[in-house]
């Protein structure tokens, strides 16, 4: 093989789409593609499709969704619960609203670790995200980039910072940037509640839909997904009377 090409392929941030390349023993025993263990997502179906059998902590995750998230945070709740053991910050950068603390507490997440950062400008947002990733004091960094345009180089800075750190790095972005390139190691899309599509995965399968199984939701805990059985489901009892 061409020597330069080989060097490019050896780089950790080069994305190779073909799964069978790795299955054929392309990665040597000491390469950093080998044996990297992800953070369990809490959903067996999702773990099975992710190359590291969980969320990658050596790169960033990009999650695309419309509107208000479509259950995007629910996907990360089990991971947040696990990360709370580490007693480090779980940073929310430019969150759309306030996380409902009693819900987090009920899920076993230490609310004292939640740090909300409200940057005033786009530059501050990128800076704060990078600082949080580089500081080694965060177990998770969630950043809402919003609908603005970001240069590839800006996102790549974040990816490099995420690759150096051992924190879970998640960027929330709108659906319309789906066609733009991303340096992220994993790009997901929330299609609807309980349905995740893997758009891009470094060294793994892509464009697969994953359904998060309902039976794996922790019992006796507030769930975000399904509506409970309600006698007045559909048209709540008395609602019409109020509107009148």
């Amino acid at each position: 093989m061409n020597e330069m090409l080989e060097q490019v392929i050896k780089r950790n941030d080069t994305w190779r789409g073909r799964r069978d390349y790795f299955r054929a023993g392309g990665a040597s025993a000491n390469s950093n593609l080998h044996g990297a263990q992800g953070l369990p997502t809490g959903y067996s179906t999702l773990d099975a499709e992710l190359r590291q059998r969980g969320w990658p902590t050596d790169g960033m995750v990009e999650l695309l969704s419309d509107g208000c998230g479509m259950g995007a945070m629910g996907v990360f709740l089990p991971a947040m619960e696990q990360l709370s053991e580490q007693a480090r910050w779980q940073t929310f950068i430019a969150p759309p609203y306030i996380p409902y603390a009693p819900l987090l507490a009920a899920r076993g997440i230490d609310t004292g670790q939640i740090l909300m950062v409200h940057p005033r400008s786009r530059e501050d947002l990128l800076w704060a995200t990078e600082q949080a990733l580089r500081s080694t004091t965060c177990s998770a960094v969630f950043s809402w980039l919003g609908a603005q345009e970001y240069r590839y180089s800006e996102l790549r800075r974040l990816q490099l910072a995420a690759a150096d750190s051992d924190s879970l790095a998640v960027l929330f972005r709108p659906n319309q940037i789906q066609d733009h390139h991303t340096p992220a190691s994993l790009r997901l899309q929330m299609c609807e509640y309980r349905k995740v599509r893997i758009l891009k995965q470094r060294g793994g399968q892509q464009v697969i839909d994953v359904t998060l199984p309902p039976e794996e939701d922790s019992p006796q805990q507030p769930q975000l997904w399904e509506l409970p059985q309600n006698p007045g489901a559909g048209q709540p009892a008395g609602a019409a009377e109020y509107r009148a």
Partner: peptide, 18 residues
């Protein structure tokens, strides 16, 4: 750091508007 009440099992959203 603290842990809050863990016994609620009603429907609550993740995000609350201020």
């Amino acid at each position: 750091s603290r842990s809050g009440p863990r016994n609620r099992s009603v429907q609550r959203p993740f995000w609350l508007m201020p």
